[in-house]
Design a protein around this nucleic acid. Sequence first.
DNA 1: GTAGTCTACATACTATAGTCTACAAAATGG
DNA 2: CCATTTTGTAGACTATAGTATGTAGACTAC
Lengths: 85, 85
Amino acid sequence: MIEIENITIGSVLKRLRLSMKFSQEELAARSSLDRTYISMLERNIKQPTITTVFLLANALNMKPSEFVQQLEEDFDGHIIKRTKV
Amino acid sequence: MIEIENITIGSVLKRLRLSMKFSQEELAARSSLDRTYISMLERNIKQPTITTVFLLANALNMKPSEFVQQLEEDFDGHIIKRTKV
DNA sequence: GTAGTCTACATACTATAGTCTACAAAATGG
DNA sequence: CCATTTTGTAGACTATAGTATGTAGACTAC
């Protein structure tokens, strides 16, 4: 069981984007998000809110739950570690 | 087609929490989130990040994608409206 | 009535989501 | 190779995610 701090969507997002043959610019336009933010998401610099997940999934012509399913598969066997100070 | 600004998880979250017979305190403990934040999520004062969605779903003994599916059903026929200034 | 449980709400804080501009570096296609 | 396109990155900004404490109201059980 691998401990992680956050769910990171970078690899899933990039894979799906490329499978649609979209540039980041194209995906940004389709999702009404900022192009540089797409870049940051793909590099796991930032994580999206639920609304952003919906926007991205819609832009990728898939259901948000399908997008999340992809994440589940990537993070199977991982546990999110929450630290208490 | 109804325009919305954000995906709000309040009604889904509360329904699922009650179906598990958890108090907000219980759900907070199981998800390692703050109790008052759970309250705010249920009242749609705040929206969660993807990591928080995973934490909540796990605490509710369901897959994150199932949780998101519930949201999809609630928001079927809605479109997220993004305003450009 | 009283104590305990549950939740809403206010307030304040830290960390970060998301936007935007500018520029540099990398990739691509002819 | 060169021009164009694409992506990474820095920096600054506004809005908000998430935490935490305290108070108050509602409800239930004894």
